[in-house]
Amino acid sequence: MKKNRRLVQIIILLGVFILGGYAIGSAVFKSSDKPEIGSKPPTFSLVGMDGTVHNLEDYKGKGLVINFWGSWCEPCVKEMPMLENEWRVLKDKNVEIIGVNVGEDALTVKNFVGQFGVDFPVLLDKEKLATKKYAIGPMPTTYFINADGKITDIYVGMLDKDTFDKQLEQLN
């Protein structure tokens, strides 16, 4: 009888601990839903201009720069040549640069990419799902992710070469 009572107490407290722990745990976890410096970037699966599907996992183990842009956004357009040059240099240094176009259709992006001679991978986020996950507000916004898969910085605004190079140093 006494033993039974203790057992019931332990079972109930354990149940409360597990259920409550789960509830509180998920509340704590939820508050850091948005990507921030030090956290892991949200996954994405987007079609590139090359017609293949690009996933975040494809870039595992590499430094990664994700640039969110649109052809209507002037500062985005202005920083393109710099990104293109950096991409050519960094290709062999285990750092990838990818551009994510926010919401435009393939034709517009194709023309733009042709016009500006952009060769680095450009992905289409037509439904703006990745844009939402990455909590993109003003554009351009650039994510810097190190080889360990952690966000080292989120840069909002136009990048110049100096700022970009400084950001790169943090990647290593």
């Binding site: 259920l19 409550g20 509830a23 509180i24 509340a27």
Partner: peptide
């Protein structure tokens, strides 16, 4: 986001425990 904050959920869990 009061109602999903850790402290509010903690209070709810405690009330639940207390009820049981």
């Amino acid at each position: 986001h009061t109602y999903t904050s850790w402290w509010f959920v903690t209070l709810l869990v405690m009330i639940g425990t207390s009820l049981v």
